[in-house]
Design a protein around this nucleic acid. Structure first.
Lengths: 168, 168
DNA sequence: GGGCGCATGTAATGAGTTACATGATTGA
DNA sequence: TCAATCATGTAACTCATTACATGCGCCC
């Protein structure tokens, strides 16, 4: 659902071919989604059949023809609907890696600390990565802000956790 | 991977049949994972074939015989390995519902506010739900703590967001 | 000439879910 | 007696990924 919203939203701003869409998503929106090429092609195809987008071929030399997708009137309606639905909804995150935490009792304290510090390092790296993202215009920036805030909260939590465990 | 860790970890504490495992997970660990019955049965079966757990039948009246699973020596080794691997790792969360946020520019401000308040209400409800969870012993409590802290951070972020948008 | 980027797509696989099927026990 | 709970399991399906396949254009 969010993936369709994403494709429609991008095509709404500018008509594009699949490769370019994926490129943009991987470069600029990697923090909130990951959409692989075959999935994108599949989705675009399905959305065309559903009438949300229309397709035009564009030949450039002897390469495989670009399939330029453009949002349709029906697609715009669908976009508006998906946007409202998705913006009002929220599915609380499940931290699957916390399962490990639940069983960490039985590990020696220093092992736990070492491993959690490893985990911490991943977050620090992600934060540094996030700081490299150039400022976006408009609401896209909010996604980046949210990402940073969340990583900050995670870092704080892990530091408290390390502290709590080491002082058992 | 985390699901196998989960099942091994629980069976390590006490031998159990599938139904009971799922029941426990749904009741006590719903905040960090969701494991449906068919998945659990499938996993237990696969883990038995792999030699991590062993199975005994237990007949009670005319019901379908309980398949009691017990962790094996090899399973214990596997558990230790999975635990260390999983505790040291961290995969940053992707907030897919932020995709909607990225496109919210084009919605009237008051619509955005209304929808985000809807979203906010879901978080508040989740927090209230989290407060009902009775105190757990040992490290399981950490999972609940993390959940609460995260929801708190999300709430704070949304409040800032609402504020930012309404004062455009 | 070789490797990378552009551009498409298919096929196999995997993980997990929903829906279905069965049937006994327990309690209102 | 009817519904809920206990207890298993299968089958179909969805979604998405990885790996594969193709071939041009461009630059070193």
């Amino acid at each position: 659902m969010e993936r369709e919203l994403l494709l429609l939203g991008l095509l709404r701003q500018e008509e594009m071919h699949g490769y370019k869409l994926v490129e943009f998503i991987e470069r600029d929106l990697a923090i909130c989604t990951d959409l692989k090429k075959p999935t994108a092609y599949f989705l675009l195809d399905r959305m065309e059949k559903a009438g949300w987008v229309s397709k035009t071929e564009e030949q450039q030399g002897n390469r495989p023809a670009r399939q330029i997708y453009k949002i349709t009137r029906a697609g715009e309606v669908r976009f508006q609907q998906l946007l409202r639905e998705s913006l009002g909804a929220y599915q609380p995150t499940k931290f699957v890696s916390d399962i490990a935490l639940a069983f960490a009792d039985d590990l020696p304290t220093d092992t736990v600390i070492t491993l959690i510090k490893q985990r911490r390092a991943v977050i620090v790296a992600a934060l540094e990565e996030a700081d490299k993202i150039p400022a976006h215009k408009g609401f896209v920036q909010l996604v980046v802000d949210h990402h940073r805030i969340h990583l900050g909260s995670e870092l704080k939590w892990l530091d408290e956790l390390i502290n709590r465990i080491s002082t058992h």
